[in-house]
């Protein structure tokens, strides 16, 4: 059953990855574009496939997997179905870090400064949230703290961009709030990849600990799980993955919320199985959304976050409604 699910998800991601490579305003045939991608002969077609569409599809997989994975990890650790990097302000704080790195000129002198600044923003936000909502992460405290952190980070991002001497910077508030993969390059892939891999590995290592945590903290500790270490790895992993994703693609909300929730019943509610399933599911969702924005408004750079929010926000409301009914 579970193997079938993973095979299906992997196939889905592979299919959407191929579809993403074949979607774009330039009119190139399927065989021609795939040949150009693989053997590198064909001038402009090779440039389009290797330098424009390939990084876009790769980033779709990386960002989607990262968001799905960190959503599953946060929900598992906090045992709260509403936890999600976008909703609790981690993504918005990463965006603030990234914008500061870009506008201060730091990112221009040292390329890695961009994802690292985004990571720093994410770390601050996660620590602040854990401090405010307590170790058990009560739903109300977590969501309220998240709203505050998110609003503050978004406002400061807008302030920095409005004060920039560059006349185009202010209009980029939209990018940082809603995210996009348009016109990214392989540079962005290489920039995000190391942090994504490190953070992803950290989050995957949490599987056993999160499984034990479903039995409660005392039971988990009696099973030999060191909770402070678990928490540290979780914070570092989420910050690295979300920071890297946000630095190159902006804030894309709701993926980390919806994907783990849809997949949870299918993996028997075990966090260790939910982590890889959510990574695959997140990749599929972002790839699909990124194909959709190119089909709906081909020459307008519709933001990814628009689509994920249209699907995700009603879902979020439904979850709040259900959580409210279950609570005594």
């Amino acid at each position: 059953m579970r193997w079938r699910l993973f095979t299906l998800l992997t196939l889905l991601v592979a299919l959407l990855f191929a579809a993403s490579l074949l979607t774009g305003p330039a009119d190139i045939g399927v065989t021609e574009s795939l040949r150009a991608l693989i053997d590198g002969k064909g001038g402009a077609t090779v440039l389009v496939m290797r330098e424009i569409r390939l990084p876009r599809a790769l980033l779709g997989v990386m960002v989607g997997a990262g968001l799905g994975l960190s959503g599953a990890a946060l929900q598992g650790y906090l045992r709260n179905p509403l936890a999600e990097p976008g909703l609790i302000g981690v993504s918005a704080s990463s965006a603030l870090g990234a914008v500061l790195a870009i506008q201060s000129g730091l990112a221009a002198t040292l390329a890695l400064a961009l994802p690292l600044a985004a990571l720093a923003g994410a770390v601050l936000a996660v620590l602040l949230l854990l401090l405010l909502s307590g170790p058990r992460g009560g739903t109300l405290a977590l969501i309220l703290a998240g709203i505050a952190v998110s609003a503050l980070a978004t406002a400061l991002t807008a302030l920095v961009l409005n004060l920039s001497p560059n006349p185009f910077a202010a209009s980029e508030i939209v990018f940082w709030m809603l995210g996009s993969l348009a016109d990214r390059s392989m540079r962005d892939v290489w920039l995000a990849l190391p942090l994504m891999l490190a953070g992803g590995a950290a989050l995957f290592s949490l599987g056993r600990g999160l499984d034990a945590l479903t039995l409660g903290e005392d039971a988990a500790q009696s099973l030999g799980i060191r909770l402070p270490r678990l928490r540290l790895v979780m914070v570092a992993g989420v910050a690295a993955v979300v920071g890297a994703a946000t630095a190159v693609a902006g804030v894309i909300g709701f993926v980390g919320l919806v994907v783990p929730h849809l997949l949870r019943p299918l993996v028997g509610a075990r966090p260790s199985a939910l982590l890889p399933a959510s990574a695959l599911g997140g990749a599929a969702v972002i790839l699909a959304a990124d194909i959709a924005v190119r089909l709906i408004a081909p020459e307008r750079d519709l933001k990814l976050g628009v689509l994920t929010a249209i699907v995700g926000a009603p879902f979020f409301l439904h979850l709040i409604y259900k959580t409210g009914k279950e609570a005594p």
Partner: peptide
């Protein structure tokens, strides 16, 4: 002066 993603397209490797 300053940086923007809008102008970054002019530095795209393609």
């Amino acid at each position: 002066p300053g940086a923007s993603r809008a102008e970054a397209i002019l530095d795209h490797p393609a």
